[in-house]
């Protein structure tokens, strides 16, 4: 169980409040207008910005934990890879932050790369890859880190619709294999319908408690109707 207790984030005139519990081992989509605070919420969970209130994972508080010590892997919209390190090194950072990889570690890196469909690309530099392939590298790294919570901040927003759905399916498959808890920020309702079990709506300074996806779209709230333009 991931519990957000009286969470409040204040940045200048921007405020976001959240108080909810998220079920483990499933995908929750975070939906809402841009500028509403979706990314801010994830950034706070990952430990990058200050907030009041508390976050609990399986009963343990995350208070005061550095980002690397949290049970969390986060994928950003861009800049997920270091451009001067090879694909394999970028993935290897998930095992050893100082990159002192044993032979066994290197085998794990290669296996993770095959899992995301990039077998044999380990020696390439990121700039030789397409946008979709780069995000696959970041996914391979998340796979190796074996953290129970995955936060995805629209990492596929720049991809075409076909490729985006393909990537979402890959993510969902991998998540199910690891039994991870996935929070996916998106502004596309079809993404949520495609892989999410529940939806959290974020808008007007408030993150609303999760609603099962089918119910969420069947009986849209006032805010959601405004967002969808219906």
């Amino acid at each position: 169980m991931l519990a957000l207790e009286n969470l409040e984030i204040v940045q200048g005139s921007f405020r976001l409040a959240a108080d909810m519990q998220l079920k483990p081992n499933q995908t929750t989509a975070i939906l809402g207008p841009s500028g509403g605070g979706k990314s801010t919420l994830l950034t706070a969970l990952a430990g990058f910005i200050e907030h009041s209130g508390d976050i609990h994972w399986q009963g343990e508080s995350l208070r005061g934990l550095a980002p690397a010590k949290r049970p969390i892997s986060m994928l950003f919209q861009e800049h997920n890879l270091f451009p001067h390190l090879s694909v394999a090194q970028n993935v290897g950072l998930g095992l050893r932050p100082d990159l002192k990889l044993s032979g066994e570690d290197q085998a794990k890196v290669e296996a993770a790369l095959s899992r995301v469909g990039l077998a044999g690309k380990g020696a390439e530099l990121p700039r030789r890859l397409s946008g979709g392939q780069r995000q696959r590298v970041a996914l391979a790294r998340a796979l190796l880190r074996q953290k129970p919570i995955w936060l995805l901040d629209e990492p596929f927003a720049a991809l075409g619709p076909g490729l985006r759905l393909e990537m979402l399916e890959l993510v969902e498959e991998m998540r199910a294999e690891q039994g991870a808890t996935l929070l996916l920020v998106t502004h596309a309702p079809e993404d949520a319908k495609h892989i999410a079990a529940a939806v959290v709506f974020v808008g007007a300074g408030q993150a609303y408690a999760p609603v099962p996806t089918t119910a969420f779209f069947a009986k849209p709230s006032k805010e959601l109707r405004a967002y969808l333009g219906k």
């Binding site: 990058f48 690397a68 892997s73 986060m74 270091f82 390190l85 932050p97 790294r141």
Partner: peptide, 17 residues
């Protein structure tokens, strides 16, 4: 943020990033 998320710090951060 990426470096912090991965726990890249100190000498390793200087050397690798």
């Amino acid at each position: 943020r990426l470096a912090e998320g991965l726990g890249l710090s100190g000498w390793a951060r200087f050397r690798l990033l």
